[in-house]
Amino acid sequence: MHLAYPAVLAVLLFCVGLYGVLARRNAILVLMSVELMLNAVNLNLVAFDVWLRDKLHAGQALTLFTIAVAAAEIGIGLAIVLLVYRNRGSSDVDRLRDLAERPDGTDPNDDLTGGPDAAGRPRPDHQAEAAA
């Protein structure tokens, strides 16, 4: 099989994931895009392992490790996203702008947090239960 097929497929998957990371607003969708990029890398690893006929099967072993690390990453990442959502009421990446300077010096997230009992405060847990 021509090596260019898996290589080009991996490249395209990677760039699709790249677009997703840069363009998606929801943090979980961003995580999905990261998974796409990881899979593109895995595909490359496997293809080159097969091509080189490596005695140690380094490519496949590394793929397995990558999958495991990706699983761990997705667990931690989701935990972080949930924490952010609980604190901010939103998991939109482009609304987490604490690091940006505001000319008037106000907190950029005032409109999100509002206060502990603000009417617009979301109830993530309630929603989770309903969804479950």
């Binding site: 990371v21 840069l22 363009a23 482009d94 987490l96 702008r97 604490d98 940006a100 300077e101 950029p108």
Partner: peptide, 17 residues
């Protein structure tokens, strides 16, 4: 230059890439 510092991580990442 300060206008570029939007606080939006995706912008930074895009520029970096």
């Amino acid at each position: 230059v300060r206008r570029a510092q939007t606080g939006n991580v995706q912008t930074y990442l895009g520029a970096l890439l």
